[in-house]
Design a binder for these strands. Structure first.
Length: 349
DNA sequence: TTGTGCGACACCACGACAGA
DNA sequence: TCTGTCGTGGTGTCGCACAA
């Protein structure tokens, strides 16, 4: 394996000159640069990551703490992870994927071991125990999600409250008066996941403002779970015609149950899904959706991290940024004007 | 004064070795 | 056996020298 000294010998310069050619931190004549680059290519040289970390006191690695649980929608998480990795590479950083099974102890271990220059935390809960651990470790950290107390950290998230409000507005604008919010499984609310609670709060506030009668029902997302949830909604409020669904796994079962229960979408019931566009387009009928860009979320998180690392390098206090990405409502075929009478409505259970 | 290149040294964890 | 010291790895960067 070629070292910087081999390249220097091959090019007839000192190793410091090779280093300056590679990192561009000092002007080097075009002729010398050309010679060094030729030697780098000829020897197949790549800087030794360990030595580089030792000398620069930076590993050029960002740890990405990814939730891998049964109640997360994996495609969205993967989309964010890919976006973080791509954006990090543009800055010369690699990404270390860390699963969340160690909790705060795992975050502390990664943050204090020098394994990574910074930590990006996904799936942040309101009172997330990992946040104080990160703060205490003194590492640069960016949260994808908004905790109760984001002091000393940068955060980026979708504006879930606005997404909830948009979905309520859409159904209200279409004339629906009785609507139901089908949420995630109860465990998600029990652990105070910020995205779930903020969406619900935004929906609730706007629904009240628009004079909607509404129900919120957590839902397991299985066919049986969705059937039970829908049955309870229609038992409590049979006149319900508008449905907002946040649990991605419940969407398919819900459409099917409404159809078989004599409430075809959109003729007799409207469904607005809080989900990625790609998923909304896969269903039949294609779903009216409120979505945010997972790619943008990852990109902004990395930009925030780079800005924090640069500030720390200059021995300045990093700025705690807080960015909420606005949601976009896309009208498709699953929502329509209220007023159609349910035909042959049956008990979905 | 500016541009360019070089030597020296620090970085840090770990193993090898010497001395108590 | 324990403790302390030194050398090792490859890279990044500072300070200096030199030429134009």
């Amino acid at each position: 394996m070629a070292t910087i000294a081999d390249v220097a010998r091959h090019a007839g310069v000192s190793s410091s000159t090779v280093s300056y050619v590679l990192n561009g931190k000092r002007p080097i004549s075009e002729e010398t640069r050309r010679r060094v680059r030729r030697s780098v290519a000829a020897l197949g040289y790549h800087p030794n990551a360990g030595a580089r970390a030792l000398a620069g006191r930076r590993s050029h690695i960002i740890a990405l703490v990814v939730p891998l649980r049964t109640d997360v929608y994996v495609p969205v998480m993967m989309e964010i992870a890919v976006s973080v990795t791509t954006a990090a590479r543009r800055h010369g950083y690699d990404v270390l994927l860390v699963t969340n099974d160690e909790g705060p102890a795992g975050v502390r271990r990664v943050a204090t071991s020098g394994l990574a220059d910074g930590v990006i935390l996904m799936d942040v809960e309101l009172g997330d125990k990992r946040v104080p651990a990160l703060r205490a470790a003194g590492t640069q950290a960016v949260l994808i999600g908004l905790p109760d107390d984001p002091l000393g950290l940068s955060c980026v998230d979708h504006d879930f409250a606005a997404a909830g409000a948009l979905s309520a507005d859409d159904l209200a604008d279409l004339g629906h008066r009785d609507v139901a919010f089908i949420g995630y499984e109860p465990g998600v609310y029990a652990r105070h996941a910020g995205y779930a609670e903020r969406t619900l709060a935004g929906f609730r506030e706007r629904a009240q403002l628009r004079g909607l009668r509404f129900l919120h029902r957590p839902c397991e997302g299985t066919y049986e779970g969705t059937a039970g949830t829908l049955a309870r909604i229609l038992a409590d409020r049979p006149e319900t015609t508008g449905f907002v669904v946040q649990n991605e796994r419940a969407i398919g079962p819900l459409l099917s149950l409404l159809r078989s229960g004599g409430r075809p979408v959109p003729e007799a019931a409207s469904v607005v899904a809080l989900c990625p566009d790609r998923l909304a387009e896969q269903h039949s009928p294609a779903l009216t959706s409120v979505s945010g860009s997972a790619q943008e979320l990852g990109r902004v998180a990395v930009e925030q991290m780079m800005s924090r690392l640069a500030a720390a390098q200059r021995q300045e206090q990093p700025v705690d940024e807080r960015v909420l990405l606005p949601p976009v409502l896309t009208e498709r075929q699953s929502s329509g004007p209220a007023g159609a009478t349910p035909s042959n409505a049956k008990d979905p259970s």
